[in-house]
Design a binder for these strands. Structure first.
Lengths: 117, 117
DNA sequence: ATTTTTTACCTTGCTTTACAAAGTACTCTG
DNA sequence: CAGAGTACTTTGTAAAGCAAGGTAAAAAAT
């Protein structure tokens, strides 16, 4: 175990856990392809790389949470535009509740911390 | 890939990412041993099992984020009581900032979602 | 006093997954 | 058509969660 590597990565670990959720939220707004999803995530400080995003999208696809259709691009090869399936929409609602729970739990722990420091 | 298994686990994945953070927060309040950490996590709906918690505590220990001392128990074998090292305290402050960023990012995405649905 | 139960911590084997890096393929520009 | 840019995929490696089983100490039951 490389200590520094471990320590450095805890912060990114924290973000990664919410990655599927963030991606479903982004796709729920409008049909969008991988390149623009990456940009949206970066805009929100949720840094991901291709090697993570593409397999993740394919997992969501084969779990029938996403569908996609090919669309021509004016500046390169065609793109896969993703959309939520009804199963995906349903899950998104559930994740929203789960997020609210987590948000509440962590913020409650934080408020204890901040009282004592 | 088992679809249902994958779908079922996204919610817990979300929580897991914040696990180290939550554990450091809990330990920051007072010296505490694994059994009581489990109870605190459950109280906050952050469900974890022994097979996850013990290796995690050991990783935090070998990264010098935690220290521990053995204490006698009145109802069984001795317990390892964990405490934050100064390195752990420093990391906790950094994680607090990272959490606030994540919280802000996700809640911003959510507010877009809720506007459109 | 020995056995059983409870409590506490640890380990093993399996599976999932993030990521870097390399690969494939399409399209536009010159 | 060669090269640059864009888009999607695959491979190999390492990290980590979890179920299940293991070790050990102390208390309770017999």
């Amino acid at each position: 175990m490389n200590k520094d590597k471990y320590t450095d990565n805890i912060q990114s670990q924290m973000r990664k856990g919410s990655l599927e959720f963030a991606i479903l939220l982004i796709i729920s707004r409008k049909k969008i392809y991988a390149g623009d999803i990456l940009k949206e995530l970066k805009k929100n400080k949720l840094i991901v790389v291709e090697g993570t995003l593409y397999p993740l999208l394919n997992r969501l696809k084969s779990s029938e949470l996403l569908s996609h259709e090919w669309k021509e691009s004016k500046s390169g090869p065609p793109r896969k535009y993703y959309d939520l399936t009804s199963k995906g929409k349903k899950l998104l609602k559930a994740l929203l509740e789960a997020w609210k729970d987590l948000d509440h739990s962590i913020n409650s722990l934080i408020s204890h911390y901040e009282k004592n420091s």
